[in-house]
Write a protein that binds this DNA or RNA. Structure first.
Length: 275
DNA sequence: AATCGTACCAACCGCCTACCT
DNA sequence: TAGGTAGGCGGTTGGTACGAT
């Protein structure tokens, strides 16, 4: 019954990693590279589950891990991305170089979710009557948002309403058409901005293909650049408190969210086609 | 000084998708 | 096409640190 465990747990070490185990794992990966996690413990001489080795390496031992306090910039980006993506920690982490999904998840659960909820309670009383009720619970840091919860499926295209995109382009000079030509991720204040690549629209939905963009999630890229660059605090109904996201809710952005849902906004990070 | 409660975070677990045969 | 495996993800748990009483 049920799934077979990823590995035999008998005789395996569990719990906190020792310095020696860390050294063995680090040395092994430096010598042989990442991957083949299931066989790694045996070959490296570790009494650990392969998954555990992978997690330890990714979340702690990797040389490019940035440890220490989350900066204000990072915190702001996490809040914005969470508002847009929900609990898609790996995607959020992908925009924060050196940070792991686990770290961001923990930081959110221990710091930001409370702050967001507190602020929400403070503001809900006064503003609730004006809010549209198209809200979805996003789980642990449960608050309402327009995030579309989906399964984590890979997808190559996103459809954005052309009129709204044009509107956006007018508002901000640095938008899709320019960034689509860039191939290197941009960093601002140490934060990785997404890159959007040129797309061909062949075979795309004729209804929505006039503004179809490809993006490659495998490279950590997606084409929500406009949303990220814009003040997309407005994408959802709530601003997240204090100075982080204080712009007022506008009808325009609510319309944008409506459009995304209406036309079948398809994205691996925001949602799959709404049927 | 001892106890209790809370916060934090590393690690684990189960499920899912991608990939390979 | 189907089945099996590996890797990845998000939710949850448990140990530890720390402050309050």
């Amino acid at each position: 019954m049920g799934r077979s465990p990823c590995c035999s747990k008998e005789g395996l070490n569990r719990g906190a990693w020792t310095v020696l185990e860390d050294k063995i794992l680090t040395d092994y990966i430096k010598q042989h590279g990442e991957g083949r996690w299931r066989n790694l413990p045996k070959r490296a001489g570790l009494k650990r589950c392969g998954k555990s080795c992978r997690l330890r390496w990714l979340n702690y031992l990797r040389p490019d891990i940035k440890r220490g306090n989350i900066s204000v910039d990072e915190e702001e980006l996490i809040i914005k991305l969470h508002k847009l993506l929900g609990n898609r920690w790996s995607l959020i982490a992908g925009r924060l170089p050196g940070r792991t999904d686990n770290e961001i998840k923990n930081y959110w659960n221990t710091n930001l979710s409370k702050r967001v909820n507190d602020h929400r309670q403070n503001t809900a009383a006064g503003a609730s009557k004006n809010l549209k009720s198209k809200q979805v619970s996003t789980g642990n840091g449960s608050f309402s948002t327009n995030v579309v919860r989906t399964r984590a499926t890979r997808c190559s295209q996103v459809f954005i309403n052309p009129d709204l995109s044009d509107m956006n382009r007018e508002a901000k000079p640095s938008t899709l058409s320019e960034n689509r030509t860039s191939s290197e991720p941009k960093q601002i204040n140490g934060l990785l901005l997404p890159v959007v690549s040129e797309s061909d629209n062949e075979g795309a939905d004729p209804v929505s293909s006039d503004f179809t963009l490809d993006f490659d999630m495998g490279e950590g890229e997606f084409c929500l650049l406009d949303l990220l660059n814009s003040d997309f605090c407005d994408v959802g109904e709530l601003d997240y408190g204090n100075a982080l996201c204080s712009s007022p809710l506008s009808d325009q952005t609510l319309d944008f969210s409506d459009e995304m849902l209406k036309c079948g906004f398809e994205s691996p990070v925001v949602g799959s086609i709404i049927s």
